[in-house]
Design a protein around this nucleic acid. Structure first.
Length: 590
RNA sequence: CGGGGAGUGGCGCAGUUGGUAGCGUGCCUGGUUUGGGACCAGGAGGCCGGGGGUUCAAGUCCCCCCUCCCCGACCA
């Protein structure tokens, strides 16, 4: 295949598009790979589509290699199956809904668990047919609140989703492991660095779940990893151990103090460290000695809201995502001034646990962060303006309606596995594997007969790779200031030949001949045969487009050589024209 | 969902107290150039994001909406 720049549908941009911030977005637009067509939707131009197809092919090959079978569903789906599993409402505003001419509801598929489940139910009914692994590569639709960063978060995107069907938990584990292995191989071939982290299954339901994150500052997910053991997890999935109970039999009674003008933790700690009747003999008071009680609203998919109180150590904030993962499908929304005004029991800045809880005066459900030990003593609000209480003991003076992992996770926190210090990084989710279990099969009635002729609910796994997002992630991982530098496996073409001589001179002949020779050796060639375009422009474009091998037929032709560059390594050298094709084919490219 | 910024030829931008919509780049024609985004001359290309309003007159002033970018989503 020889692609000629003289006729190709391509226009590179000299300037950065102003609305593109992250490098992948900026460069993919500038180099002529994609164009924005709609909010959160992009058109793939010839160069971009070639890279997308190569990524897709690698994903497909690895899925086929483990024995998964490809199918293809419509993107426009009926309401009923999603109604049965509850996701018609659970997905909330993120779901694109539409109606046909008769007013019948449809949706644009955000993911296809229901449809795969029903398809298998339709055709299979025996344990002998399992395990079964099906997948598709398809456009997905999610009405994101805030599409951003080009391909990284769109409302329409290409995804590979696969589903496993097994008769028992051991089978599910095998299916899960097979997919996990395929994902490792896929991302290795794509040239994408990744971290595999424990994740929350969230709205999907189910148990074991891991995410493949591409570590990157512009990523939207935050994850921890342990320096000394293998533990790594999305921060929202970090589960700390239950702290040991503390013996409080020798502790003093709690005392209420007047603490005027201390509506924040900082002012409160300050006051306790300056007033002689409050000072500690052994050390300064710290924010971690206080218990801060945060009120949020839970909003359920049906629109109903209710307040929730969460107690966390005063030096920590409530991590909304982490909390949300545990109250799903409810969302966390702000508890506003108006809400405070409507709840006279809550004295903002001085809320204490004695009034919180379903059985107490506020009637608000009260959850304590898991780190707060039974028997630990706290400085906290006394439910009166300008008053706090000290020495208030969990389990003696107050109780809660349950524990939750709500406090933010920080670098330096202890690893739940080995107690070493945790590091924090950000990443882009490029893959996700889940053990769904029987939630969907049960809801939709997918059963098969076992060896004993008894009906068994099938257990499922679900596995996704963001194909279009992977293109952006690869661009994030492989670029410099002047352009892209694709790994060989996903570059739009294998080699880019620049004809850099005067029109009609020998450079053109040499470039053409070399293109043919490389084509004969099964390489795809991008040939810059544009007339009347100066060499400088062609060099800039070649570097921007970023194929790993760049060949220049220019002034060296007069002495029988071409210049061969390795865009990834940044190296270049001269090669005799006669040897050029073989040399280029044999070039080691990472 | 909240806050901030911004929408003017493909891309990047200017547009003063309201008075014929401009520059660079890209594109077309001709000529000169040809190893790091060349030069000269001549051209084409605009619902000034959309809709209302004020005015003799609106890119400019007022209101509503849409879109894009960034930040936030909690202070007890």
């Amino acid at each position: 295949m020889i692609l000629r720049m003289s006729t190709m549908f391509l226009r590179t941009l000299r300037d950065d598009p102003v609305d593109a911030e992250v490098p992948s977005h900026r460069l993919l637009v500038r180099a002529g790979y994609i164009r924005r067509a709609a909010p959160g939707g992009y058109t793939w131009l010839p160069l971009g589509l070639r890279t997308l197809n190569r990524v897709e092919t690698i994903v497909r090959e690895e899925m086929d290699a483990i024995g998964a079978q490809e199918v293809h569903f419509p993107a426009m789906l009926p309401r009923e199956p999603y109604e049965i599993t509850g996701r018609w409402t659970d997905y909330g505003p993120n779901l694109f809904r539409l109606q046909d001419r008769r007013g019948i509801d449809f949706l644009l598929g955000p993911t296809h668990e229901e449809m795969f489940t029903l398809l298998v139910k339709d055709l299979y009914s025996s344990y002998k047919d399992l395990p079964l692994w099906l997948y598709q590569i398809q456009t997905k639709f999610r009405d994101e609140a805030r599409p951003r960063a080009g391909l990284l978060r769109g409302r329409e995107f290409l995804m590979k989703d696969s589903y496993s069907f097994d008769i028992d938990d051991e089978g599910l584990q095998r299916s899960y492991d097979a997919h996990r292995g395929a994902y490792l191989r896929t991302f290795d071939r794509l040239g994408l660095p990744y971290a595999v982290v424990s994740a929350m299954s969230g709205a999907m339901g189910g148990s074991a779940s891991e995410e493949f994150l591409f570590p990157c500052d512009s990523g939207e997910d935050t994850f921890v990893s342990c320096a000394s053991c293998s533990y790594s997890a999305n921060t929202e999935a970090v589960r700390v151990g239950e702290p040991a109970k503390i013996d409080y039999s020798n502790l003093e009674e709690a005392v209420v103090y007047d603490t005027p003008a201390t509506p924040t933790i900082a002012t409160l700690v300050d006051l306790f460290n300056t007033r002689s009747d409050l000072k500690r003999a052994d050390r300064q008071w710290m924010a971690a000695d206080t218990l801060k009680n945060v009120i949020v609203n839970l909003r359920y998919p049906d629109g109903r809201t209710e307040p929730l109180a969460v107690g966390v150590p005063g030096d920590r904030d409530v991590d909304t995502k982490r909390l949300e993962a545990q109250v799903s499908p409810a969302e966390i929304v702000e508890f506003t001034e108006a809400d405070f005004a409507a709840n006279k029991n809550l004295i903002k800045g001085y809320i204490g646990p004695q009034s919180l809880g379903l059985k107490n005066s506020s009637g608000i459900k009260y959850l304590l962060d898991r780190s707060i030990a039974i028997g630990s003593a706290w400085i906290t609000g006394a439910n009166a303006p300008g008053r706090h209480v000290a020495g208030l003991v969990n389990g003696r003076d107050f109780s809660c309606d349950g524990v939750v992992d709500a406090a933010d996770v920080r670098a330096g926190d202890s690893c739940p596995k080995c107690n070493a210090k945790l590091q924090i990084r950000r990443g882009i989710e490029i893959g996700h594997v889940f053990q769904l279990g029987r939630k969907y099969a049960e809801a939709l009635g997918l059963t098969v007969l076992d060896q004993n002729g008894k009906s068994q609910v099938v257990t499922m796994g679900s596995y996704g790779i963001g194909v279009s997002r992977a293109v952006a992630a690869i661009a994030e991982a492989n670029h410099d200031e002047i352009g892209l530098k694709w790994p060989s496996a996903v570059s739009p073409t294998d080699v880019h030949i620049v004809v850099a001589g005067k029109p009609g001179d020998e450079t053109s002949t040499v470039g053409e001949a070399l293109a043919l020779a490389l084509h004969d050796q099964n390489m795809t060639v991008l040939l810059d045969d544009r007339k009347g375009v100066s060499p400088g422009v062609k060099f800039k474009d070649a570097e921007l487009i970023g194929t790993p091998r760049i060949v220049i037929a220019g002034r060296g032709v007069a002495t029988g050589v071409v210049e061969v560059r390795n865009r990834r390594a940044g190296t270049s050298g001269e090669v005799a024209i006669a040897e050029a094709a073989n040399h280029i084919v044999a070039m080691p490219i990472k």
